[in-house]
């Protein structure tokens, strides 16, 4: 044990700075720092900077939201649009279409008649009297009251 330092405390030591700097270091340092500040832009005011960063971060979310919105609106308006389109077609066109392309059961015609409460004209059926008679005979419908 070194007796010289055996009972030493920090209070016994003078506060001596052991580090040195080159000559005139502190005279030159401000100038060196000022030279560097000339090439360093100052930070922009925080809200401006924050807003710029937010814009970049928000952009993809806004785009995504826009796509979802457009998709949702188009999905919602589809049935309404179909109903509007159908309403624009007049009855005779619908009848022509159905008689030309649709397979109609006699029950369908009967239902239509019941709804409209009117006699079906022969031209609506688009069938000759003879063929109609045969049809009724075939399905035993002559005595059925609709």
């Amino acid at each position: 044990m070194n007796n010289k330092h055996k009972n030493i405390t920090l209070n016994d030591l003078p506060k001596h700075n052991v580090y040195q700097v080159p000559e005139d270091y502190f005279d030159r340092l401000p100038m060196r720092i000022m030279e560097r500040t000339a090439t360093e832009p100052q930070q922009q005011w925080l809200p401006v900077k924050l807003w710029q960063q937010l814009q970049i971060a928000i952009a993809p979310f806004v785009l995504l939201l826009l796509f979802v919105g457009v998709f949702y609106v188009s999905l919602k308006s589809q049935p309404e649009q179909q109903a509007i389109n159908l309403a624009a077609v007049n009855d005779s066109e619908i009848v022509d279409y159905l008689s030309a392309y649709a397979t109609l059961e006699s029950a369908d015609l009967a239902e239509l008649n019941a709804i409209q409460q009117q006699e079906l004209p022969s031209e609506f059926l688009n069938v000759s009297s003879k063929a109609a008679e045969e049809e009724l005979e075939y399905y035993h419908l002559r005595d059925t009251d609709y």
Binding site: L29, R32, I33, R36, T37, E40, P41, Q42, Q43, W45, L46
Partner: peptide, 15 residues
């Protein structure tokens, strides 16, 4: 490091 500190001070002193 001292120069870096003062450059940071320069950039942020406004805030």
């Amino acid at each position: 490091l001292t120069q870096e500190v003062f450059l940071k001070v320069w950039k942020n002193l406004e805030n």
